[in-house]
Design a protein around this nucleic acid. Structure first.
Lengths: 181, 181
DNA sequence: AAAGCTATCTATAAATC
DNA sequence: TGATTTATAGATAGCTT
């Protein structure tokens, strides 16, 4: 929108970023309000700016807390039936532990917090990640092939541009992974 | 937008309402994502349709819980007013959700369950994993250097085997990463 | 209920004040 | 800096299939 296309990445210039934040924040909240009213939906939006300031919207006439309460309760178990407090404490502890465990694994998988690992561990990790990368690239190639095929079919119906689809494809790929070229 | 201006009131025709809901919901989430990325903000959006179905967005790379944590901790919310049991329920639910979320992310990070990701998502994932791999290899090299140094020092005290430590090292490295040689 | 298609309306980036 | 204007990209209402 506006005088030029904007690529989807953090705006580096702080002034521009602040101006855009202000405009788009207003736009987002307006859209949320329209959607809530037009379609009779309940909506909650929370925005924290980079500097930590909070902005929120909740569809009238409910308070935002209600929306979030529903969110918190939506995928959860019914605790009404639970009577033993001990049970709760036990379950919480278990979940907390599992959570921490997952976080640690996750961080190591992302290449952080490797200090406690032995050479053997790091090596195993490396191989696992190599395999992940292999699978992800496989999937990416599938999607690219699919995309290419679609564009090719589209081009078939637009004579005169038959030689351009590869250019489009390449430029698209470049936008997705500029670092690769 | 579209072929005619719409006044800001509930769309009475259920079919039109549903279609508009679907379109605008997507639009809203897209805008939220753009704002989060362009302006480096943390954003959470929850939408309940009139029929009670829930949709949500949280600023990348994942974890709506984070945004809501900050909301709940923000000064002067209803959280303070809740009784202890309520707080426990909230906390348990939050942990459970976070747990599920971590598992999903983990699986995607390991290159499984990629079917739901777009080309863009897969591309981002690929770059993240590449970076992880880079960090892990960096750490591995550190450990190898360290190991090498230790062996070298040891050799200094055992004359007669001075020319063998490199052979040991190479064979050790080979055992760790046979694929590399 | 799902997709695709434009004419049109809206949001907003950049320019200007 | 902040408000206002303008040109353009983007969103979408009403259709069609």
């Amino acid at each position: 929108m506006g005088r030029g296309k904007v690529e989807l990445k953090k705006i580096e210039n702080p002034t521009n970023r602040q101006v855009t934040f202000s405009k788009r924040r207003m736009g987002l909240l307006k859209k949320a309000n329209e959607l809530a009213i037009l379609c009779d939906a309940q909506i909650g939006v929370i925005i924290f700016s980079g500097t930590g300031k909070m902005y929120e919207y909740s569809s009238p006439p409910w308070r935002i807390a209600n929306t979030f309460d529903r969110y918190l309760k939506a995928p959860s178990t019914r605790f009404e039936e639970m009577d033993v407090q001990q049970k709760i404490i036990h379950e919480m502890t278990r979940m907390k532990d599992e959570n921490n465990r997952l976080r640690i694994i996750m961080r190591q998988y992302m290449g952080d917090d490797l200090a406690s690992l032995t050479l053997q561990d790091v090596s195993n990790l490396e191989q696992q990640i190599e395999f992940s990368l292999y699978k992800v690239r496989l999937r990416k190639q599938q999607l690219l092939d699919q995309h290419l095929l679609e564009m090719h079919h589209r081009e078939m119906h637009i004579p005169g541009e038959q030689n351009n689809y590869l250019c489009h494809m390449v430029s698209h790929m470049y936008k997705l992974s500029p670092g690769l070229y």
